Simulated assay, not measured.
Amino acid sequence: MGEFESKNEKESQSNERVEESHNLDGICEESGDIILNLHHNPIYGNSDLKDLHDLPTEILQKIFSSLLLERKVILISCLLSKLSSCVEALQAMIYPFTWPYSFIPVLPKSLWDFVEAPTPIICGILSIEVINDYEIEHGIVVDLDEKCILKEEGDEDKALCTSMLKTWRKSITIAKNIPQNQETHSYCLTDAYVNMFAIVLKNYGDYIVNGNFQKEAFIRSRKSKGVRRFLNWFTDTTMFLTFVDAVITNSQDFSQFDEKIALYGTESSSLILDKLLDWKILN
């Protein structure tokens, strides 16, 4: 028995340690240990994804895919506070990108005909009647109260590649193992999306040369076939093109995202998430 306890003690001392403080924003390796240094990051300043993430994971995935595909995303709830919170959270989900189309947290009934316009829109609506009175195409409509999809295109599951989904699901699981009343819970939800972009877009700055983005070379640089397939269509979106233009104009505006790439856009990023996942489940 004594030998068994001694062996366990040694194994415990050799395990990687994860220390929590504020939010996931740095890594330091000492003697084989993984230590996350967590400190304030403006990325999280106005984001609160808790209400939105009461939805099932499969619905969240379809909402996120619809955003990246630049389609209509319409959320419905009879509760104003929930509706506005969830609609605002959609902006945080796509950081470092910004939504380049109409964004209306609560669409009044007098303007419901906006949902029939052929252009993308993010909006919240306080009544389910809208789906009976108007024809909504090219997008997704979600009932927040019943936690169900009312309308969808049906191809949302094909937008993201396997490696992206794997990273996202790990991060979501980590967040769900943190009590919702802790500030870190909301930070981890935001990280689930930021980290995925950090992995997919790592080294993007190397392909902006003399004010031009070398799209084809950037896509070819990705080792994963799935990531290349994703980038083939995503780099043509207005969302991505606006991002590139903004980086060219003032790259310092994206320094926080670049720090995320330094942390999660590495070969060891999967190990970091695995260790965090093990740590949160065991604690």
Score class of each variant (00 low, 15 high):
residue 180 Q to A: 13
residue 194 V to Y: 02
residue 257 F to M: 06
residue 217 A to H: 12
residue 261 I to V: 12
residue 268 S to V: 10
residue 233 W to M: 10
residue 208 I to S: 08
residue 229 R to L: 10
residue 243 F to D: 07
residue 269 S to Y: 06
residue 247 V to Q: 05
residue 191 D to W: 01
residue 245 D to S: 15
residue 240 F to S: 05
residue 241 L to N: 15
residue 205 G to L: 11
residue 247 V to S: 04
residue 230 F to L: 12
residue 190 T to S: 02
residue 190 T to G: 01
residue 240 F to K: 09
residue 189 L to Q: 05
residue 185 H to L: 01
residue 220 R to W: 09
residue 217 A to V: 12
residue 269 S to M: 07
residue 271 L to S: 11
residue 195 N to Y: 10
residue 191 D to C: 02
residue 212 N to R: 15
residue 178 I to N: 02
residue 247 V to C: 08
residue 266 T to C: 05
residue 221 S to A: 11
residue 267 E to F: 07
residue 185 H to G: 00
residue 231 L to A: 03
residue 189 L to P: 01
residue 268 S to R: 15
residue 249 T to V: 13
residue 242 T to N: 15
residue 265 G to K: 07
residue 228 R to K: 12
residue 194 V to P: 00
residue 224 S to C: 11
residue 254 F to Q: 03
residue 256 Q to N: 12
residue 245 D to F: 11
residue 249 T to I: 13
residue 262 A to S: 14
residue 274 D to R: 10
residue 232 N to Q: 14
residue 193 Y to T: 01
residue 246 A to W: 09
residue 212 N to I: 13
residue 233 W to P: 05
residue 202 K to C: 10
residue 204 Y to W: 13
residue 191 D to L: 06
residue 183 E to H: 14
residue 183 E to G: 15
residue 256 Q to D: 07
residue 212 N to L: 13
residue 276 L to P: 03
residue 268 S to T: 12
residue 251 S to D: 13
residue 251 S to K: 15
residue 192 A to R: 09
residue 176 K to C: 10
residue 199 I to W: 14
residue 232 N to H: 14
residue 255 S to P: 08
residue 268 S to N: 14
residue 176 K to H: 14
residue 249 T to R: 15
residue 209 V to P: 01
residue 202 K to I: 05
residue 183 E to R: 15
residue 252 Q to P: 00
residue 247 V to F: 03
residue 239 M to T: 03
residue 245 D to T: 11
residue 244 V to P: 01
residue 240 F to I: 10
residue 188 C to S: 12
residue 235 T to W: 14
residue 274 D to V: 10
residue 204 Y to S: 11
residue 223 K to V: 12
residue 259 E to C: 02
residue 214 Q to H: 11
residue 256 Q to V: 08
residue 191 D to E: 06
residue 208 I to K: 11
residue 227 V to P: 00
residue 190 T to V: 04
residue 255 S to G: 11
residue 186 S to E: 09
residue 212 N to S: 13
residue 249 T to H: 15
residue 275 K to Q: 04
residue 187 Y to T: 11
residue 251 S to M: 10
residue 222 R to V: 03
residue 191 D to N: 09
residue 268 S to D: 14
residue 239 M to H: 00
residue 202 K to F: 08
residue 266 T to G: 04
residue 251 S to I: 13
residue 240 F to W: 06
residue 258 D to E: 14
residue 265 G to N: 06
residue 271 L to A: 12
residue 186 S to A: 12
residue 221 S to P: 04
residue 195 N to W: 10
residue 262 A to P: 05
residue 239 M to W: 00
residue 260 K to I: 00
residue 205 G to Q: 10
residue 274 D to C: 07
residue 243 F to S: 06
residue 189 L to I: 07
residue 204 Y to F: 15
residue 202 K to V: 08
residue 247 V to K: 06
residue 205 G to N: 13
residue 267 E to H: 07
residue 199 I to N: 14
residue 176 K to E: 14
residue 249 T to C: 15
residue 179 P to L: 10
residue 240 F to A: 08
residue 254 F to R: 04
residue 222 R to D: 00
residue 211 G to F: 01
residue 263 L to R: 09
residue 207 Y to V: 07
residue 182 Q to S: 06
residue 215 K to S: 06
residue 264 Y to E: 00
residue 218 F to W: 06
residue 261 I to H: 04
residue 228 R to V: 01
residue 245 D to I: 09
residue 275 K to V: 04
residue 207 Y to Q: 10
residue 206 D to W: 08
residue 256 Q to W: 04
residue 207 Y to G: 09
residue 270 S to R: 12
residue 243 F to I: 08
residue 263 L to Q: 09
residue 267 E to T: 11
